[in-house]
Design a binder for these strands. Structure first.
Length: 312
DNA sequence: TGAATTTGACCCAT
DNA sequence: ATGGGTCAAATTCA
């Protein structure tokens, strides 16, 4: 996994990213400190806007960098993870064969009793346009595109694939960045917690356990590949991963979040979940979500580390 | 009735 | 030739 000849450019971008992220963090901290105070609504909104701008710029840069250096040593065939990767969920950051669209993967583990609909909700509004049986995959793959594709020309798409090994695990492959207004809406619900690269699985699980307790989901089954469970009152529960495996990977994929609107028709073989729920959930989902983000290989000292509990 | 989903057909890359 | 991704007509839903 050598850095390619674009290493220098990459370093440059990384530096820019650092600056942007630092800026974003500062704004975030300001916002945080204002939360408890009597600061004006405008002031907070201004800060939030600045944070979003930082995100936006960062993402844009990363988008370009993705084109510079997109490689995927782990082209784990979409669909059927034949290899037993369940343990070490490598980042499936894959060079999209489709032009230079950024592509990244997010994994969602559904806790028992959790409405899949909600668990998969990522803040964006999606429209399903296809479903396909994939060779070697037990479950069909769902194809979704942004609801605003027509009206706003938003090219973001995502694929949802249920894991063979673990039916509770959903792998969501995102492609493209939302150019619709949803992007800014969702910006606020992004991140959350970044695991230190040297954080052990035990520590991880501890965190998970704590989170589960917090949400009252005590019977959560922690799988080995489960990364984290977070809980906060936002439309989706997301987290940035940053573990050792991830760190070996290329770091130029855009991670952005979209949100799902599912009618669970395709996934309703889980007797346990509440099939009655509908789309566009605004849940405080206790589900576990592992987001393979473009930030994952930023070290703990990276500004992004500062986002740690910032949104929580 | 409009929007969302389903599903078979088609297209395209490998 | 095959499999993955998308299209679009039919169907369902709200």
């Amino acid at each position: 996994m050598e850095r390619n000849s674009n290493g220098r450019e990459w370093e440059k971008m990384k530096k820019e990213l650092n600056e942007l992220m630092t800026e974003g963090r500062d704004y975030a901290q300001q916002l945080k400190s204002q939360l408890g105070s009597t600061s004006s609504q405008e002031s907070r909104e201004h800060l939030a806007k600045k944070i979003l701008e930082s995100y936006h710029k960062s993402l844009t840069i990363m988008n370009y960098s993705g084109e510079l250096d997109q490689v995927s040593p782990h082209s784990h065939g979409t669909g059927s993870p034949k290899s037993d990767d369940s343990d070490h969920q490598e980042p499936h950051i894959i060079q999209s064969s489709k032009k230079s669209m950024p592509r990244w993967t997010r994994k969602v583990i559904i806790a028992p009793g959790v409405v899949i609909d909600r668990a998969l909700d990522d803040g964006f509004s999606w429209r399903k346009y296809g479903q396909k049986d994939i060779l070697g995959a037990k479950f069909p793959r769902g194809y979704h595109r942004c609801t605003y594709r027509k009206s706003k020309g938003c090219e973001a798409t995502k694929q949802v694939q249920r894991s063979n090994e673990d039916p509770m695990l959903f792998e969501i492959i995102y492609r493209g960045i939302h150019s619709c207004s949803q992007a800014s809406n969702v910006g606020l619900i992004i991140p959350v917690q970044v695991l230190e690269p040297n954080q052990t699985q035990e520590q991880e699980n501890l965190e998970i356990g704590k989170a589960s307790l917090d949400t009252g989901h005590h019977n959560y089954n922690h799988q080995a590949h489960l990364h984290q469970t977070l809980n906060y009152p936002l439309p989706s529960t997301l987290n940035l991963e940053s573990n050792n495996v991830m760190l070996q990977e290329k770091d130029h994929n855009i991670g952005f979040l979209g949100s799902t609107s599912y009618s669970d028709a395709n996934y309703n073989f889980l007797a346990s979940y509440d099939a009655g729920s509908a789309s566009h959930s605004t849940s405080n989902s206790p589900s576990t979500i592992g987001l393979e983000s473009p930030f994952e290989n930023f070290g703990p000292s990276h500004p992004f580390g500062g986002f740690g509990g910032f949104y929580s």
